[in-house]
């Protein structure tokens, strides 16, 4: 699914990384625990989270993720935007809850990937 479609489905504001809008991302992981996100090293994933800290963006950087969605109306700080821009990570912000954001993306065909063996 293209990042632009993800933004449209989630009615999300793209805060940075517009150059990634045409990128395809195959899977998603949703968690507020970065420890759990780090367990799978597949880079072809969208991170959906309500944890809005610089360590969220750092986690995306370490994992080579290309896009992060902040749910529940969380808004990134200028520092977070700067780190994301430096590392080519798109930041999307939606007012949807984690549950609804995941549900909408799942309904449109995006599957999860969270475990070390690549399953969900």
């Amino acid at each position: 699914m293209k990042v632009s479609q993800i933004a449209q489905i989630l009615r999300a504001e793209v805060r940075c990384g517009e150059e990634n809008l045409d990128l395809d991302i195959s899977y998603a992981v949703a968690s507020d625990m970065m420890s759990d996100v780090l367990v799978c090293n597949d880079a072809d994933r969208l991170l959906i989270t309500g944890l809005c800290t610089v360590h969220t963006v750092l986690t995306a950087q370490i994992l080579d993720l290309r896009a992060v969605v902040f749910v529940r109306s969380k808004r990134p700080t200028p520092e977070m935007i700067e780190v994301a821009q430096q590392n080519g990570i798109a930041i999307l912000c939606t007012d949807m809850s984690m549950y609804n954001a995941c549900g909408e993306l799942y309904k449109h065909g995006m599957k999860g990937r969270a475990r070390p063996d690549g399953t969900d």
């Binding site: 625990m33 970065m34 420890s35 759990d36 780090l38 367990v39 360590h55 969220t56």
Partner: peptide, 18 residues
């Protein structure tokens, strides 16, 4: 620390896995 998204007890096993 958990409130900051870490400390789920996955660190050491993940280091070994990686």
């Amino acid at each position: 620390v958990r409130m900051l998204g870490f400390g789920a007890g996955m660190g050491l096993p993940n280091m070994k896995r990686c």
